[in-house]
Design a protein around this nucleic acid. Sequence first.
DNA 1: GGCAATAACGAACAAATGTTAGAATCGATC
DNA 2: GATCGATTCTAACATTTGTTCGTTATTGCC
Lengths: 203, 203
Amino acid sequence: MRASGQTAKSRITKAERTRARLIEVATRLFQEHGSDEVTVRRIAAAAKIEAGSIYYHFASRDEIMRAVLEGGVGGAKTEVLKAIAEVAGASPLDRLRAALGAHLKYTLHHHFSSRLKAIRRLPKRLRDHHMKQEREYAAIFADLLAEAQAKGLLRPGFDLSVVRMLAMGALTWAAEWYDPAGTMAPADITDELMKLLTEGIVK
Amino acid sequence: MRASGQTAKSRITKAERTRARLIEVATRLFQEHGSDEVTVRRIAAAAKIEAGSIYYHFASRDEIMRAVLEGGVGGAKTEVLKAIAEVAGASPLDRLRAALGAHLKYTLHHHFSSRLKAIRRLPKRLRDHHMKQEREYAAIFADLLAEAQAKGLLRPGFDLSVVRMLAMGALTWAAEWYDPAGTMAPADITDELMKLLTEGIVK
DNA sequence: GGCAATAACGAACAAATGTTAGAATCGATC
DNA sequence: GATCGATTCTAACATTTGTTCGTTATTGCC
């Protein structure tokens, strides 16, 4: 049992823990400050490690960013899918509300998109991978809209892909102006958007 | 006439022309690439000047950015006000459409907001000034919404400031996904948004 | 306890950055 | 055409950046 205990514990090697901690710390730093302003040395310092040691875990700074991005989009996807699953039986529009709500919540909480997505300057390889992930993420919302349309819930004459991007953009951009100290909860913003989306604002 | 011609021409001193060219070039570079990635040397090269010479016209790199930002927001404001003026007699909502259209057009054409507004890292002084400008800009749209409400055009129960930010955010974010090569014109996107905003998408 | 592998250190590197300052050049005025 | 200020160049600077590498410490295993 000693051996198995040891082995069981070292299924997670120390390097993996350090790597995870680095990603965690880097993510936080990237959120708090911009994508620049965050140097390898700052990440190292925040992770209580020396700058050079980072290169035992990552081949380059860009690989750290890749990991952070991947975690970010992946996390958002997980949360959104979970939120949809929680209202599994509901109508497409109610599931869309749940999805948009989760999207906003994640975006606000991680202050993710606006700070990090603005990184087009990634090496092509990484950028392609990131955009593929992004497309998969967008497809979740596109599917819900398509389903609503298929069920005849929507008025005709809309370009659904534009609608989707406008709606998601409105929420994504919320990270730029949302004030957590204010009286408004993220869910309120989602509701407001859904009201606009469904009924419109005009009498 | 020679003298007067000379004098009239040199009312705009050479320095002013160079300075203007620098702002112009820097704006373009900031748009095409991120706010980082654009070094003083690259601005200089694009303006057919040597790096050191820039400091005859600007005290620091941040002052260049300040000028670019100011020009950007100022330009957008000018365009939006012009668009509103062109439909002066129309209803608040039609003027709002014109305003949002101009906003989108400027944002897309200059690829402005998403790349440049993301610069929170500006020195406090500059940032404050920039955000003041931004508030004035937002007020244009807020006023139109308020007027619509005052005229009883809107359904009750909306937080107009949230509506405004969602709508502007949707368009601002469009710069991230809009494809100029596609079949869709900026005006189409504005129309789509206005349809959502006014009538909603649901049957 | 000792050995090999793993992980982290720490000093150095070259390249790039913003910035400065003195010399050179331009351009208008006498 | 000489003069003098306005404008630009050139060459350097101090820092900071990402990265490398030989060395040291730690860890897991016999």
